[in-house]
Structures are given as C-alpha cells and as structure tokens.
Write a protein that binds this DNA or RNA. Structure first.
Lengths: 209, 209
DNA sequence: GTCTATACAAGGATAGAC
DNA sequence: GTCTATCCTTGTATAGAC
C-alpha cells in the first residue's frame, strides 16, 4: 500500500475517533512512522487530506444516487437510498462533520463549492419528491414538497452531528434505524395508500418498528 | 464599563462575525487595546469566554421557558416561545455554534454537562407537547409525541448551523420567519381544529404566510 | 520521486514584574 | 488590576539526503 493511501486511511480513522480539529499533523505522521515533512510532501496542507477524503465520500454518494435514478422510483427505493447515504455519512463522519466546521469557519473563501453543491442537492431532492408524487407514492401540494425538501435537507445534513454531540449510543445499525424511523414517519404523513405499502415493505426488510 | 464586560461584548461580536475558531486571543486584545496577558487575567482560557457567554445565552432561554410555563399552554404561545429562542440563538450564534464545535471535539471530558442539559431539554419538550395534547391543541399518539420531540430536538439545534453553512440570506427577521414556517407546518400536521386556529393566530401576528 | 531534519509563524497559556 | 516576556504546541515550508 502506497504511503499516500496509508495517510488517507489513517487520517480518516483518527478523524472519526477524535474529531478533525483534535488530530494534528504530527500525530498522523507518528501513527504511520513517517516524518511530518513526509506528510507535507504528500499533502501540503491538512485541509488537503480532508478534501481528498471528502471527494471519496461524494463519489460514494453519487453512486447511490445514480443507482436510485436508474431504477423505478418508489418510497421503498428512496428509503433504501437514504439508508445507504446514512451509512456513508457514518463511515466518513470525521471528515463530514469536520468539513462543516471548516466551511462554517471560512465563511467566505472557497465557500462557493459547498453552497453550489448544497443547492444542487436540494434540487435533486425536489425532483425525487416530485417524481414520487407523480408515481402516486406521495400526495403533496407545492408547499408540501417545499416542506419535505426543507426537512430532508436539514435532517439529512445534521442527524450525524446530533449522534456525536449527544453520544448516547454507538451501535451504528441501531443509530441508523432510529433515524430511518423518523424519516419514515415524516414521509408516511404524505404517503398515499400505495406509498404506505411501499414504506411498509422497506420497514419489514430492515426490521424497523 | 468594566474591562471584563467589554471583553465579553467584543468577543461575542467577533465570534458572530468570524466564527469562534477564527478569532484569536491576540485579536480580541488588540480590538480592546489591552494586552493579551490582561485578557488572560480576566479569562484564563479562551474557552472561559465561551462558557460565560454560553451561560448568558442559557439564562436568556430559561427566562423564555419560564414565561411560557407560567402562562396557559397553546400552540400560539409555544410558537411565540420558539420565536424568542430562535432570536436568542441568532444573537449568540457565534458561541452557540462554537460550543457545538468544542463539545464535538472534546467528545468525553466536560461532555457530561452538555448531554445532561440536552436530555433535560428533551424532557421539557415532551412535557410541553403532552400538555398541548391534554389541552386539545394537538392530537398525537405516544409515537407521534416521540416524533415531535425528535424533530424539535434536531431542528431547534441545527437550523442556525444551516443558515451559516449555506449563507444564502442574512436578514435575521426573514430567516427566522422561514424556519418558523417550517415548524408551523410540522405542528399543523398534528393540530386539532382548536390547534389550527391557534397556529393561525400566531401566523397573523407574525406575518407568516 | 520519496523521505528526514529542521526552521518558522501563529495561537494559547502562564509566571512574575509593576 | 494590568502588562511583559516567555513557553509550548500546531500548521506549514523547505533544504537537502537517498
């Protein structure tokens, strides 16, 4: 395994464990038995490591979205998509959360990418919900869709922060089932008969009460 | 005005503007024309400033909660409570978000306070919703209340982060109206006839569509 | 191309003079 | 109560060995 890849692996591990802000360059180097300068050679800034891991995370998610869009829309499939995304966010929690804080701190430079990305994400969700209405899984007016988009945006972005802020549970499966249950409940308020059946199907497959 | 108070004022201003992590001790001192050592005399750690401002923030909110609990429960009053809390969170955004950052990083020491506080907050919300059901403003089963508590917990904690992460708007009134609208919509899904009327009353008073 | 050693800047923290 | 001097840690940059 190349040093570069080892750096990325170890960094993610440390970020997940201790939080991005609490992991120093020297610590990563020490873990890998290389010199801090060597780390500098591969990634000139600490933020570069974050960015590379973040790209990995984004590629991961893009795949999940693509799979969803290639299939026939349904609430079952949508909840499956979100389940995959949640696991991905969990796996990359250190960089995902770290990035939000970096973005928040910077607050102006380089921000453009993040904001643009976020707005594309919103449009994507709007499309998904609109399709689900068209396919008779959801029954929602324009303002209902607005609400769902706002909800999924905030909920999907911050559930993982809540987990690590409150630290009341650390079984990944259990945690994600909890948040899927909330999402399920929210969607069921807009679900048609067909929609409710589709949600039920997902629940049974995934052992969600 | 005592130096100590000037430090708190200026720090909040700077934290709000640039983010807690981007404001240095030397910068605060420079702004006040005092020496970094003098700052250290008043607050030995940077985190101490954060903690003091945070207590101010908490006292603020406790007041709002007390006022609510002294009155007769209603959805109108509850939305009024949340409006006050939102403005308070906005005013202290730098320390509120900064604290989440610190809590996340620490992830073990001093965490107890935060977790305990958060769990008390949840119980409080559960009580509020239960009362609103008892007073015929909401119609919700046990699991419906669970949902509402989960929702308000995540939503109420992170809406302000979303605002400063996306940076698409910076008119405080407008922003808070937006989030109140979402909250209103969520509550209206559980509202009785009496509840909907109470929500309407709040909307009219506060110019929310 | 890959790495070590080393230096430098900036920020937080502290001891002690006045 | 105020301030200076100083220390330690962390991010970052680079000269030069292999």
């Amino acid at each position: 395994m190349k040093t570069r890849d080892k750096i990325l692996d170890t960094s993610l591990e440390l970020f997940n464990e201790k939080g991005y802000g609490n992991v120093g360059n020297r610590e990563i180097a020490r873990y890998l038995n290389i010199s801090p300068g060597n780390l500098s050679y591969h990634f000139s800034k600490k933020e570069d490591i974050l960015i590379h891991l973040l790209n990995e995370f984004r590629d991961n998610n893009s795949n999940y979205y693509n799979v969803y869009h290639q299939g026939v829309p349904s609430l079952d499939a949508f909840l499956g998509l979100m389940k995959n995304i949640f696991h991905s966010q969990y796996k990359f929690r250190g960089v995902y959360i770290g990035n939000q804080f970096v973005q928040m701190d910077v607050a102006s430079s380089g921000q453009f990418d993040y904001v643009q990305n976020a707005s594309a994400r919103l449009e994507n969700f709007r499309q998904i919900f609109t399709d689900l209405v068209a396919h008779d899984y959801l029954k929602a007016s324009e303002s209902g869709i607005d609400f769902l988009v706002s909800f999924i945006s905030l909920f999907g972005r911050f559930w993982i922060q809540e987990v690590f802020l409150l630290q009341t549970e650390n079984d990944e499966e259990k945690i994600i089932r909890h948040y899927l249950k909330i999402l399920k409940k929210q969607l069921s308020m807009f679900a048609t008969k067909k929609g409710k059946k589709s949600i039920k199907k997902f629940s049974l497959k995934n052992f969600i009460a």
